[in-house]
Structures are given as C-alpha cells and as structure tokens.
Design a protein around this nucleic acid. Structure first.
Length: 563
RNA sequence: CGGGGCGUAGCGCAGCCUGGUAGCGCGCCUGCUUUGGGAGCAGGAUGCCGGAGGUUCGAAUCCUCUCGCCCCGACCA
C-alpha cells in the first residue's frame, strides 16, 4: 500500500478531548475519528489492526472446535422477555419498534439468541457438545462512554457459546476457552492476567476475566506474586495487616471526649493511635431499611461486595444519619445500636475505638463480638499492603483493561428458553452452557497502552497494520525511487504487508508520521547511504538502525520480523 | 443519574471578568527557494463565537433555557 493512496489523517497536536494514551495516539495517528459520544469511525489503519486481531481470534477459536456463525444485531423483545432481561436491563439497552409496532432491541449480547437456536435445533445428547461463535457488533447505551475505544456504545465482540450435556463437558469447554484465550492474547503481544471475576448478572458460579494491565484500565485487580492468586478487586479477598502490637485500649468500654474530631484520620491523630484501632461505621440505606457497615479504620468499604450480601443499598445522607442515629456522621458507632450490622472480618480480633453515638464523644475499648453483634462478611477493598488470602504474602493492586471474559452459565438461559435434549435414557435435560467474550478493539487499545513512547505507537508485529514501512527520502531522486520500488515489490511478494511513504514531503514529516503510526520496522532509503550501496533498517521499538546492503535487505528484514 | 470542566477557522488556543470592527500558532491554497527528524520568504482563503430566547443603541462577552463533548463518581449481563 502506498501512503499517498491511503487515508491517514495524522495530527500534529493532540485533540483536547482525549486523555488516555491509546485515545490520543489513535486520533493523532489517523486511526479513528469520533462521530458522537462512544461512537467511532475506524479508519483504514485501525481497521487493518482489527482485521489482524480477528484473524488470530478466529484461528484459535477454530482450533478448539468452535464454529463461526453470524446472528442478527436486531432482536425481537419476546426472547429477552422470556429470560427476564427485557425488564432487568434498563436504559442500557437500545430499544426500538418495527413498522408493525413490535418491540425490538439492538443486541447487547447474544445469549438469548444463541439459546433460541439451540432450543430449536438440538434434540439429543448425540448433538452435543457444540460451540458457536461470531465476531459481531454489540450495542450498549453506556451511561458514560469513555477513554476512546475502550468503552463505546457500539463495539465489536467475539462471543462464543458452548453447549454441553453435563457439568463435566462445560468444564472442558471452559478450560479449552481459557487456553485459547491465553494463546490469543499472547499472540497479540499483550501482557495480561487471568483473574477470578464476579459472575454478576450473567449468572452462574464461575467466571474469569482476562486483564491487560494499564493505567488506563477501568478495573483493578489484586495479584499475589508468590502463589499466583489473582482476582478482580470486586471480589478479591485480602487479609488486612495486623494491628500494631502496642495498644492503649485495655479495660472496659469507656467514652472519651473527641471535640470536633469526626473522620478516622482526625480522631486517630487526636488520640495518637494508628487508624487500624478504629472502626469506621457507615450508615447504609437498604431495601429493608437502614443498617451499619463496619470496616476497620485503615480500610475502605467496597460497595459492590456489600451489594452482593445486602442487596441494593446506598450510603445515607447527612440528614438521614441525624434522623436515624440521632447524631451527626463522625460520631456514630456500633455499640448500643439496634440496627443490623455487617462487619468486615478484619475487625474480628482486637480492641477498638469508634463513635459513641453522642456528639463529641468516641468509645474506646470496644471488642467486636463482645460489645456488639454483627454478621461477618468480607466487605473491604483489597489494597496494597494487604496479605494474600491463599499464602499470606503481600498482594499488589494493578489497574487493568478487561480484554476478555469467560462465564459458566449453567442452565440460566437454557431453562427459560427450553433448550433441552434427551439423554441416553430418554430423559429430558437442560443444556449446560458457557459464554465467552473478547473485545478486539480493546485488544488494540491495550496494545497501544502497553507499547508506546513520546513519538507514538509501537505495535506488536502480529497485529501491526503493516509489517514494514519503506521511507524513501527524496522522491525526485530516481535511484532512491527505484531502490524503494524494488523493496516494495520484493517484500510484498515475499508475503509481507508493506506501506511505502511515497509522498513528496520533507523527510522530517515522514519520520514523524512513521513513528506515530508505529509500524514495527522502517526501511530508510536515502541518497546519502545509497552511494555506498546501503540503506537503513530501523526498529520502531529500540530506534536502533542497521545499515544494510541493498541486496541483503529482504532477507535480513524477514529474519528480523521472524525473530 | 450526581459532581466538575469545556464549546470561538480543519487542529490547538487567546479574547469573555470590565459589552463597541473576531485574533494568534499550526494546517490549507498560489508562487519561488528548500529536502536526513514536523522548512524559508511572499501572497491568499476560511468563522451563524454550539443553538434558542432575553437585556441593550449595540452581545463571542451579561441573563435564562437548551444541545453537545470531556473528566471524576454511580452504573457496566
């Protein structure tokens, strides 16, 4: 492909609206343009990257016996009503009516549709197992699209679905997918982790996410370097470090004056005690009324964990706290309260200080379990310095981009949609399902996030839009042009994807654009070196150049790319 | 949905507080010179100042409403 024929609208300056590195670079390097919030046009370079990612995905999916199909993006409401998600899902679903006033939606995922197909066509255990996949556009009216193509309202997704006659079959398919995902993300040149994740509304017991570490990521994950424990912090269990040994908290509970000291940090400073000696008491409003959530002073409540235990709930507002407890926030505590309490296990041992439920006072000497009763559930947010629940060593927390997920669905969809089969004994049973997703655009974005420098992108060779870019300097020099042309022909016919910057522009512009768009290898053809029969092969990543004899270029480059 | 920010030339921004001829840099077009890291000189084009109302002799500027985009949070099958 010739640069002059390709639409690559590079920008000298960063557009104001972009913040994430991948977003800035994709705009600047002429990969994408924004149509509206969360809606992007993929320009030729970006679409080539997506194509390469998809090819890798297809190869690995095919290799585990998955079969590619294509399902509609527009769905009748009826099927979604049968699984209950038509009403569960709210505003995130794009809804519309057809000319006959039938309710329809734009598909946000395809469990319903693929299960409908299975219910219609699968009769016998002999038809199982099956795995079907597609790479197709999904629609979600996100509350807040963000970070360029990381979170959009219309996006490509590889989704596959497995159908088995029993749990053991599901287990095998689940494992096959996990292994295929490892190969896919490795081949795409990404650093990634497989972590335990919250099955959430997908249902089912087991789920994992594949996470590409990046500061631009929306998720955070807890990792143990020693034993390999890894989990999304939405469900990561961690053990808080023990309280310091010296404690001033012997004896029975006693109220102490703490005028105008409300927050844990204020009171801990005032009393000269570590924050881990405090109980943070948070008044929550749940569906069945108010209750207290208790975490240790040095910990943070994780609301999502609390939701799983207590159902829908929210922090109480200032006025509500006064009405319900009778004292302002900052002086509330678990002792003497009639409210239901949910306490984090980090509070189980030790003696504590917490609000006294009267203005200006805290109570010291509180022994959880003795001076108050609570339900014990892990509700704190795992943080650096906490200990691994498996092996006790330090865990670290990293931000990450979710690039793939795998769910064991079980019969969540097969039951309501009556996807059943007859087993060997002629008995009707629901099909056991799994669901597995990958976001190709997120792979591309994560690759940029993980591989860039001040000059631009640095693509992993497997998903780069081109393998090599030829940069002839001085197009009016016939020798330069003819050498560049011969490279272009030879490299192309040897099976490489070649971009040639044949524009009649200054060298600086070609160099800057080449670095920006991030093709892994550059061949610089200039009269300076050509006089000695040499050209330069330059690595985008290391910026190292090797002067190479014209005759050896094709062979050498192929070796470099292969290596 | 809550909080914050921003809408002025293709892009990045100034002007707004204190109302009075709409500006700068880059890009774009023409010509000449230039050609190994975003060239130089000369000339040129480009704006419903996001939109609608209002105040005023007069509004990019003040007021009201509205639309859009970004960021933080909530949400995220």
């Amino acid at each position: 492909m010739r640069f002059s024929n390709m639409f690559i609208p590079t920008l000298r300056e960063s557009p104001a609206e972009a913040e994430a590195a991948s977003h800035i670079l994709m705009l600047r390097a002429g990969y994408i343009r924004q149509l509206a919030a969360g809606l992007y046009i993929y320009l030729p370079l970006a679409w080539r990257v997506i194509g390469r990612v998809n090819r890798i995905i297809k190869q690995e999916m095919d290799a585990i016996g998955a079969q590619e199909i294509s399902m509609p993006a527009i769905h009748p409401a009826e099927i979604w009503q049968k699984t209950g998600r038509w009403s569960e899902v709210g505003e995130e679903m794009f809804r519309l009516r057809d000319r006959g006033q039938r309710d329809m939606c734009l598909g946000m995922t395809h469990e319903e549709i693929v299960t409908w197909l299975a219910s219609a066509e699968i009769r016998s255990y002999r038809d199982l197992p099956q795995t079907w996949y597609q790479i197709q556009t999904k629609f979600r009216d996100e509350a807040r699209p963000r970070s360029g193509i990381l979170r959009t309202r219309e996006f490509l997704m590889k989704d596959s679905y497995s159908f088995d006659k029993d749990e053991q079959g599901l287990e095998e398919n689940y494992k096959k997918h996990a292994e295929a995902y490892h190969r896919i993300f490795s081949r795409c040149g990404l650093k990634f982790y497989q972590v335990e994740s919250d099955p959430g509304m997908m249902g089912g017991a087991t789920a994992h996410e594949f996470m590409a570490p990046s500061p631009a990521g929306e998720d955070s994950i807890a990792l143990c370097a020693k034993c390999g424990y890894s989990a999304n912090t939405e469900l990561a269990v961690s053990v808080a470090r023990p309280q310091p040994a010296e404690s001033k908290l012997q004896g029975e509970p006693q109220d102490i004056e703490t005028p105008e000291k409300r927050t844990v940090s204020e009171v801990s400073e005032f009393l000269g005690m570590d924050t881990s000696f405090f109980i943070k008491s948070l008044l929550m409003i749940g569906e069945k009324g108010p209750f207290l959530a208790l975490v240790r002073g040095d910990q943070e409540l994780h609301e999502k964990k609390l939701h799983r235990i207590a159902g829908e709930c929210r922090p109480a507002q200032k006025e509500e706290i006064k009405d319900i407890i009778g004292v302002e926030a900052g002086f509330i505590g678990p002792v003497g309260t009639k409210l239901k309490m949910i306490a984090d296990p980090s509070l189980k041992d030790g003696v504590y200080v917490s609000g006294a439920n009267r203005p200006g006072f805290h109570t010291k000497g509180i022994k959880p379990g003795v001076h108050f009763k609570a339900e014990w559930h892990d509700i704190h947010t795992a943080k650096p310095g906490d200990k691994c629940p498996e092996c006790g060593s330090d865990i670290k927390i990293e931000s990450a981009i979710e690039i793939g997920n795998i769910f064991k669905l079980g019969t969540k969809y097969s039951r309501p949609l009556k996807a059943v089969y007859l087993d060997e004994n002629g008995k009707e049973k629901p099909i056991i399902m799994g669901s597995y997703g990958i976001g190709p655009a997120r792979i591309a974005a994560a690759a940029i996030e993980q591989n860039n420098d001040k000059d631009g992108m640095i693509w992993p060779r497997s998903i780069a839009p081109f393998d090599v870019e030829i940069i002839p300097l001085g197009t009016d020099n016939t020798e330069v042009s003819s050498v560049a042309e011969s490279f272009y022909n030879d490299l192309s016919s040897s099976g490489l994807d070649v971009l040639m910057d044949d524009r009649n522009v200054r060298p600086g512009i070609k160099f800057k654009d080449a670095d920006l768009i991030g093709i892994p290898w550059q061949i610089v053809v200039g009269d300076r070196n050509l006089k000695d029969g040499l050209v330069e092969i330059k690595s985008r990543k290391t910026k190292e150049t090797q002067k190479t004899a014209v005759k050896e270029v094709v062979e050498k480059l192929r070796a470099l790319i292969a290596g």
